[in-house]
Every structure is written in structure tokens, then in C-alpha cells.
Nucleic acid binder design. Structure first.
Lengths: 122, 122
DNA sequence: GACTTGGTTCGAAAATCTTCGTACTCAGGT
DNA sequence: ACCTGAGTACGAAGATTTTCGAACCAAGTC
């Protein structure tokens, strides 16, 4: 009955669990989408993971138990966000490399508003 | 009956296959051991992958089909070596990051000491 | 030649991962 | 209070991965 679900401590997650979680295209897509803007929390309904509610819920669980995401229950919906900076501290460079491999440039900085073209400046 | 086995082209291997191959501790151990000294070829008998011959052979196949290793038959034994620099070109930075995560510093450079002092094999 | 050594491949069995339906919970609206 | 929408947990069925044994192959050795 936990209204708040369990997130494992980062040092009890193994690299094997991380690789296994990311070996699925849909799950990896979620992580990449989140990692593009690591501080931004998004409703899980926006992610194109196919299947029924329980199937989708299963995938969030796999990602959660791999230490990759944090799930927050808002009562009216579930929010997902990347588990940063904990994950970076435990597995340094991993997410940056993943983003690079997927050809997705990380968001330049902490502009949390949709600023079409933000001149990176400096 | 191919005495020489098939290695897929690097651009038909998916990131999913790579992650899946590395989600196993033993397989990842092989890749890390090879990546420490990427040009060095080693007999597959040196790797501590448990199981029968066919089980071990299965794991080489998974790594081979993920584009991670090259298998060369010497008639009297099987040699494994990292699939460099092809893999690096296809998935830049991946192996370096893996080595870093496993706390294994890569061999500095051209010191491919094909002998040096004997590794503790016995 | 016969025999051993070190390996692959092909099933089939075992184990694990994935999907789904059902039951349940929580918060909001009526 | 009842209902609805969004989600988790638990089985069980289905799909995939992993392991093993048996058959086979190639190169050395006797």
C-alpha cells in the first residue's frame, strides 16, 4: 500500500541492472528523453511506451530499480524524472555518453522554460 | 561448418544488443579485460566464465554478435580480441566509459608489452 | 591410421523477462 | 456519498535467454 514507492539506494544498484534496463528500446528512449533536460520532471503519460497500464508500470519499475529515474505520485498522475545527480556520482559519465551515442545534445544549461533558441552565450 | 565464424558488420549491431550483451557480469568481465589492452589478443581459455564448453561458446557468440569481440580460430584454440577501432567508431566513448566505471585504467598507449613480465598464469 | 584436445552447433530443459487481466488504491469531481 | 481517471501489485500465460548434453569438426600427437 505504499503511496510512495521504494527507490533503492544508488550503491545497491549494479551496473548489470543498468545495462539490462537500457537494453530495451522503449526504456532507453524514456531515459534519453529525460536526460536531455535532467532537472525537468515529466508526466509518464507523455512517453510512447506501448502496452497496457500494467505493462507501462512494469517498465517504470525496471527503470526505478536500476536507479535511473525517480517516480513521484501527484495523486492525479505519475511524474518521472531522471535520478540526478546521484546517478552521475555513482556512474560518472554514463548518461552523457548515452546521450552522445543517441545523437541527442544535452540541454545547454538550466533554462527550464521553452526558449526556442537560447544563445549559449559566454 | 564455417571454420571461420561470422562477424556482423558494425552498423547492423544495435545499441540494445550491446547493452544486453554487457548486462551479464561474466561477459562484461571479458570485455573489460580485453579493453584494458585493446590490441592484445588472448586465448578464450583465460577468461573465468563458468559453465560447460557450450555455455562458454554461447557467451562468445553473444559478444561477437554485439560487435564487441573478434574470434579467431587458431586450430589449436580460440583467440579473442576487442573489436577495435571499429567499435569505437560506431559507439564513440563507450568502451572508455565502461573501463572508467569498472575502475580499470586503460593501458596508457603504445606499451603493448607482448611479454614484459609474465602475467600470473599457471 | 587412431586418439586426444579445444572448440562449434543443434536441440531440449530450465530460468528469467515481458505482457496482460484483474483487483486494488488514491485523489478529484459531481 | 458515489463515480471516474490514473496508476500499482499480483498472478498466470507467453516469449526470450541461459544452460547443458550430444554430435560433430579441425589440428596435433602417438
Amino acid at each position: 500500500m505504499p503511496v510512495q514507492m521504494h527507490h533503492p539506494s544508488l550503491d545497491e544498484v549494479s551496473l548489470s541492472a543498468v545495462f539490462a534496463a537500457l537494453s530495451d528500446d522503449h526504456r532507453r528512449g524514456v531515459v534519453v528523453a529525460l536526460a536531455v533536460d535532467p532537472t525537468r520532471e515529466q508526466p509518464c503519460s507523455v512517453f510512447p511506451v506501448p502496452g497496457t497500464k500494467s505493462t507501462r508500470s512494469y517498465h517504470w519499475k525496471v527503470l526505478r530499480e536500476a536507479g535511473l529515474i525517480i517516480q513521484r505520485n501527484t495523486g492525479t498522475g505519475m511524474m518521472l524524472r531522471l535520478r540526478e545527480p546521484e546517478f552521475e556520482q555513482r556512474f560518472p559519465g554514463f548518461l552523457a555518453n548515452l546521450l552522445h551515442l543517441e545523437g541527442r545534445p544535452p540541454v545547454p544549461a538550466e533554462s527550464t522554460h521553452e526558449n526556442g533558441d537560447a544563445p549559449p552565450d559566454r
